[in-house]
């Protein structure tokens, strides 16, 4: 397994920090890509941050009320080694499904 740390991104217009309002996920939880993970407040607005990727949450940084600077760790995910960093989806090995049947009279000359 590999750990991937996601730092607080610039939430727009060059803001340098954000305050944690509420975590929507907790360590040990499996999250999907784009799932809301945390509510943050900046000097401009409050917003829900979507998860940048799928994975298991290992650590979250900052309790409600804490201020985090842009670029500092926000959340750490654990992902399988072979999927770490991949763009796209690892294909599943599925049993082949068919709708077409073959019919032929074969001359065995």
């Amino acid at each position: 397994m590999a750990e991937i740390s996601f730092p607080l991104p610039d939430l727009g217009e060059g803001l340098i920090e954000a305050t944690v309002l509420e975590w929507l996920v907790e360590p040990g939880q499996q999250v999907e890509r784009n799932q809301a993970i945390v509510e943050l407040e900046t000097t401009k607005s409050a917003l829900e941050l979507p998860s940048p990727q799928a994975g298991k949450v290992v650590r979250i940084h900052g309790a409600p009320g804490d201020t985090i600077n842009v670029g500092e760790p926000l959340i750490v995910f654990e992902v399988p080694d072979d999927t770490a960093g991949i763009v796209g989806t690892v294909p599943k090995d599925e049993a082949p499904k068919r709708r077409v049947r073959l019919s032929a009279v074969l001359d065995e000359d």
Binding site: R98, V100, L102, S103
Partner: peptide, 14 residues
Amino acid sequence: NIDRILFGIQRVLE
């Protein structure tokens, strides 16, 4: 996909 390849095979067989 599997069906399109099977169709291709059927066209040749026919």
